[in-house]
Amino acid sequence: MTQTALNRFWELVLGAIALKEEAFELIQSLPQGAIAALYIVLIAGFSQALGQGTVLFVNRVKPLRFFLSLLIGSVLFVFTVLFWGLSTWLVSFVLFKVNIPYGIIWCTLGFAYAPLILSFLVALPYLGVPIQVLLSIWTLLAFVMGLRVALDLTAWQALSCSVLGWLVFQIVQRTIGRPVAIVGKWLSNTVAGTRLVTDMQGLEQLLQAGPQMLRRDNQTNAGDRDNGEV
């Protein structure tokens, strides 16, 4: 039986979490690595959406819409990772003249997201923020390890490549990528069936005001639509 990344999925996931160099070498050599990486990113995205599900609870999102919102959050998360990978691929080419297929970067980044499978733990009271920071650093270290192996770079070159790729992604996201972010927000609100309040001050107001405030906001939005307002 031919060995593939899917056949050895959890072995590779645990190896990536443990920052094992051998795991990232196998990721590049086994078939179906890109599909396995996609599964990891989807699971990590769903876990992160689940960990942030408190926002959906506070907004009183109905059960079916709650689950659909988690799925949409997972898909949007995949696109975020795809674009970070693309910006890293461009940085590696410009700075280090590394001419490799994008798929290698995608497989490396996808498996580097393995620690974020534990993102649901950010829902823990008091521990959520430290856990989120720890998982983010863990993911960055895994990506640096993977890049070093996949691109044959030094540790500092791999770190520079990943960090600069992230910075390029952030700049693009806040400039020419704003329409995409707006569409993503609209999609999230549509699936949730309400205009989601996500900022801390707004969430505190929702908790203090109770269901009446949310119902009044939705009725106001519905009235605006009936009057042709946007």
Rank of each mutant, 00 (worst) to 15 (best):
L127M: 14
S29R: 15
I171D: 03
E11K: 15
G193D: 03
G15F: 11
S188R: 12
T108I: 08
Q48I: 11
I27S: 02
S188D: 12
A23T: 10
P115H: 09
D217W: 15
A142K: 02
R215M: 14
G15R: 09
L71Q: 02
A114T: 08
L151D: 00
L76V: 03
Q219P: 04
V230P: 01
A123F: 13
I35Y: 14
L196K: 07
V55G: 00
T220P: 02
L12Y: 09
L206M: 10
A158N: 04
L95A: 02
V180W: 13
K97V: 00
S188Q: 14
R60I: 11
I117V: 14
G184S: 07
T198S: 04
V230T: 11
W166Q: 06
V58Y: 13
G73S: 01
G110A: 05
F111W: 07
V168P: 00
A37K: 09
L167I: 09
L30H: 03
L187T: 12
Q132Y: 11
N59D: 03
M145Q: 06
Q48K: 15
G128V: 02
L164R: 00
L14K: 12
Y39I: 13
I17S: 02
M145V: 08
A36S: 02
K185V: 10
V13F: 03
Q205V: 13
Q52P: 04
T220C: 14
S87Y: 01
F79G: 05
Y113K: 13
L71R: 01
G103E: 06
G73M: 03
L82Y: 11
R65S: 12
E229A: 12
A37Y: 08
I35C: 08
G53Y: 00
V41L: 08
K97Y: 00
E11S: 14
R174P: 10
L214W: 09
V133I: 15
F77W: 11
I117Q: 04
M200V: 14
T88F: 02
L159F: 13
Q157D: 05
A192R: 04
L14P: 08
S29W: 13
V75A: 09
Q157F: 02
V78C: 04
S160L: 13
K185D: 14
L76K: 01
N221Q: 15
D224L: 15
V230K: 03
R178H: 14
L64F: 15
A150C: 05
W156S: 14
C107H: 11
V183Y: 11
L64T: 12
S29N: 14
V168W: 00
G193S: 01
L141T: 05
G73Y: 10
L164C: 02
G33C: 04
